[in-house]
């Protein structure tokens, strides 16, 4: 089996795994900076939340 067929046969599951991982980390980062309820996190990211236009207060 050469490298090209391996890539193709793994393609869909690879896509799902890679996409899901990126999605989870991405959502975690955006939720943490933009939507966290914790007041200390809110205060640290306060100006960013306003500047990006996330609903803040």
């Amino acid at each position: 089996m050469n490298a090209t067929t391996t890539t193709q046969s793994l393609s869909i599951s690879q896509r799902l795994i890679a996409g899901s991982l990126a999605l989870i980390i991405g959502v975690f980062l955006i939720a943490g900076t933009g939507f966290a309820q914790n007041m200390a996190v809110h205060n640290g990211a306060h100006d960013t939340r306003h500047a990006i236009g996330f609903p803040c207060h």
């Binding site: 896509r15 799902l16 890679a18 996409g19 899901s20 990126a22 999605l23 980390i25 991405g26 959502v27 975690f28 980062l29 955006i30 943490g32 900076t33 933009g34 640290g44 990211a45 306060h46 100006d47 960013t48 939340r49 500047a51 990006i52």
Partner: peptide, 26 residues
Amino acid sequence: RTFYTVLATTLAGLGFALLMGAVSTF
């Protein structure tokens, strides 16, 4: 305060970049 704002904006930037990468992959 400036440090935390830069940090939070950069982390949000990474978040949006990963989200874009995820959408592109799906």
